[in-house]
Simulated scan of single mutants.
Amino acid sequence: MTLAFPTFTAGMVLSISLIMAIGPQNAHVLRMGLQRQHLWLTVVVCALADIALISLGVLGLAQLGGLSDKLMGALVGAGVLFLSVYGWQAFQRFLHPRALALDTQDGDQHATLVAEPVSRRQAVLSALAFSWLNPHAWLDTAVLIGTASLAYGQGSTVFGLGAAAGSVVWFLALGVAAFWLGRRLNSLHVWRALDGMVALMMWGTALWLISSLA
């Protein structure tokens, strides 16, 4: 028990440190929070998707020596296509906000952006796409965490459980933050700033992935 706790904590700390950067997956959670559409469903799907990748890394890829070149190339290609298309959609939203509504609070009128309805199926598929079509997610969760778990020998499973717990803690915290922001910062300026940031992030990540193939 004395050895298990530090191993569990090490896995949790590594997991949180790898996923806490505002990448495509986290930006998507924030956007769903601002839209106030299926936020907690998105949080659950993203956490479960990360747990699946962590399990794959700890139980399989670590022993196999990582992803094959062909599989990695296919993931990079799919990731570049997905990130480019989503970046273009975000850029279009930045240039042309789709709808405005007048919201009245305390007698004051202010413009807020009205999002197009998103079905549960669309929310689940989007969360899975951001989790599994992003090569960074595979590298961080499956490869890096899986490889790090080898250092703990028979404690690798405990390390993996800690990493999975770290993912759950992070996405719950991010969901709370997104819910809080969604209730207070639902304005045209905030949405346009987020869409502009997302477009640049997506295209920048796609270009970095393309350069990694050279």
Rank of each mutant, 00 (worst) to 15 (best):
L3V: 13
A4F: 07
A4S: 13
P6R: 01
P6N: 00
T7I: 11
F8Y: 09
G11R: 02
G11E: 06
L14N: 05
I16D: 06
M20D: 07
I22L: 15
I22D: 09
G23N: 11
G23E: 15
A27I: 10
R31Y: 05
Q35S: 03
Q37M: 10
L39S: 01
W40G: 06
L41I: 05
T42K: 00
V43F: 05
V44M: 11
V44G: 04
D50W: 03
D50Y: 00
I51S: 13
I54D: 01
Q63P: 07
G65T: 09
S68Y: 09
D69Q: 14
V76L: 15
G77Y: 06
G79I: 12
L81V: 12
F82R: 08
L83V: 00
S84T: 15
Y86I: 03
Y86N: 08
G87N: 07
G87A: 10
W88V: 00
W88I: 11
W88T: 02
A90K: 04
Q92T: 00
Q92L: 13
R93E: 12
F94L: 15
F94V: 00
L95R: 12
P97L: 09
P97G: 14
P97A: 13
L100I: 12
L100P: 02
L100C: 07
L102W: 15
D103H: 14
Q105V: 02
H110S: 14
A111D: 15
T112V: 14
L113K: 05
L113H: 08
P117S: 10
P117A: 13
V118C: 11
S119M: 09
R120I: 08
R121S: 06
V124L: 07
V124P: 03
S126I: 04
A129P: 05
N134P: 04
A142T: 12
V143A: 08
V143N: 01
V143D: 04
L144A: 12
L144H: 08
A148N: 01
Y152T: 01
Q154F: 00
G155C: 09
T157W: 06
T157R: 02
F159S: 02
G160Y: 04
A163M: 09
A163D: 15
A163R: 01
A164S: 13
A165V: 06
G166M: 13
S167E: 01
A173L: 14
L174E: 10
L174I: 10
L174N: 07
G175E: 07
V176H: 11
A177E: 01
A178Q: 05
W180T: 10
L181N: 07
R183T: 00
L185G: 03
L185Q: 04
S187R: 04
L188P: 05
L188C: 10
H189A: 14
D195G: 05
G196Y: 12
G196L: 11
M197F: 15
M201V: 02
M201I: 07
M201L: 15
M201E: 10
M202A: 14
W203C: 04
G204E: 09
T205M: 11
A206K: 06
W208R: 13
W208V: 00
I210E: 00
S211W: 11
L213G: 14
A214V: 08
